[in-house]
């Protein structure tokens, strides 16, 4: 068993109204970042888990996303990185 540190990005699904992202985009425009086209605000979750291999740690994290970390109705998730911890 080794310990892995896995980072997960969870974002509102495309097409679903994201008022927080829109508000941040508006603020960026106000600050002069006129080329900003879209902003989405989500969550960044770091899970440390003991597993035999990086693949099994990733598979386990996917299962956590499906069951709890992300809401399959409104959110998408992406495993951003897997590192030995």
């Amino acid at each position: 068993m080794s310990r892995f540190r896995i980072a997960v990005h969870i974002t509102p699904r495309r097409g679903i109204l994201d008022p927080q992202g829109k508000t941040v985009a508006d603020a960026l425009h106000t600050l002069g970042f006129s080329t900003v086209r879209d902003v989405h605000v989500g969550r960044h979750v770091i899970v440390e888990v003991d597993a035999g291999t990086a693949d099994s740690a990733t598979a386990l994290t996917r299962e956590m996303c499906e069951k709890l970390l992300a809401n399959p109705v409104t959110e998408d998730y992406e495993i951003a990185s897997v590192e030995g911890a």
């Binding site: 509102p12 679903i16 109204l17 008022p19 927080q20 508000t23 809401n71 109705v73 409104t74």
Partner: peptide, 17 residues
């Protein structure tokens, strides 16, 4: 109840935040 799958859909942050 939505999270538990007893009802369909989800309740998100109010549009006004």
């Amino acid at each position: 109840a939505c999270e538990a799958g007893l009802l369909p859909g989800a309740l998100l942050r109010n549009a006004s935040l």
